[in-house]
Design a protein around this nucleic acid. Structure first.
Lengths: 121, 121
DNA sequence: ATAATTGTGTATGCACAGTAAGCACAATTT
DNA sequence: AAATTGTGCTTACTGTGCATACACAATTAT
């Protein structure tokens, strides 16, 4: 549960938080029903407004990554493995499609792209 | 030189234009010294403000893709092949790195990622 | 030379997103 | 009851993106 904010990154803070939590849930690093620290605490520790944290949490709940109960706290939502794999595939598919169309419009062929991936993995 | 704007895409218009021109220059689709249509024309045809087109053009000039002369017009900047390949590599490297780190944080292994690329190329 | 074309500079305005501080309220736990 | 936690709301500031419009400078065409 090591949350962090990168001020140099121009992607909005609430999105950075979203990505970190979502990734940890999808990779299994955060097990279902794991309690998250109170948003006031997160807000204080990261030096970020409560509204920003809430924004991230709301989106995470909307997308099925979190459960939240007033007075009690926020917890990792239970997700079955099939569903989890679907989500992972969704997220990666979008990124892959973007990269492929990027490569194509730059005139880079398939094998060159593949070897770039192999190198950097 | 088929410029287009996608209103559904949330990426800013000036960036959409930038990407299209830059890609065509880097892929060689736009040869050096090719004249671009006047910004007033582009503005009218795409139904966007001159400021937006200017913004894209300025950035393209700053990054060495365009030459612009008041009274004369804008032209594709001359780039030698080595330099062009470097630029292509830069752009693709960034995208590849992002994808790879994305895959890693989602717990997706190298071979799975590679086969996704192969499928979609 | 004069006129037309093209890029430049600048002012004004509007809308939205992101962030922040603060306060009152509701639900739950201790 | 008191403490903790999430919720809802107001207010405000900043930056980005976009648009309109006008005047000016440089080049090209007549």
């Amino acid at each position: 549960m090591n949350l962090s904010v990168n001020p140099n990154d121009k992607t909005p803070i609430y999105r950075q938080l979203y990505e970190q939590i979502a990734s940890e849930v999808l990779s299994g690093a955060l097990a279902p029903y794991t309690p998250l620290p109170p948003i006031r605490t997160v807000s204080k520790e990261l030096g970020v407004s409560m509204i920003t944290v809430r924004g991230a949490w709301e989106m995470l709940e909307r997308d099925g990554y979190l459960l939240t109960r007033a007075g009690s706290g926020c917890f990792v939502a239970p997700i079955n493995d099939a569903h989890r794999r679907d989500r992972v595939d969704e997220r990666l598919s979008a990124a892959v499609d973007a990269l492929v169309s990027d490569a194509k419009s730059l005139g880079v062929d398939r094998d060159t792209l593949l070897s770039m991936i192999e190198e950097r993995f």
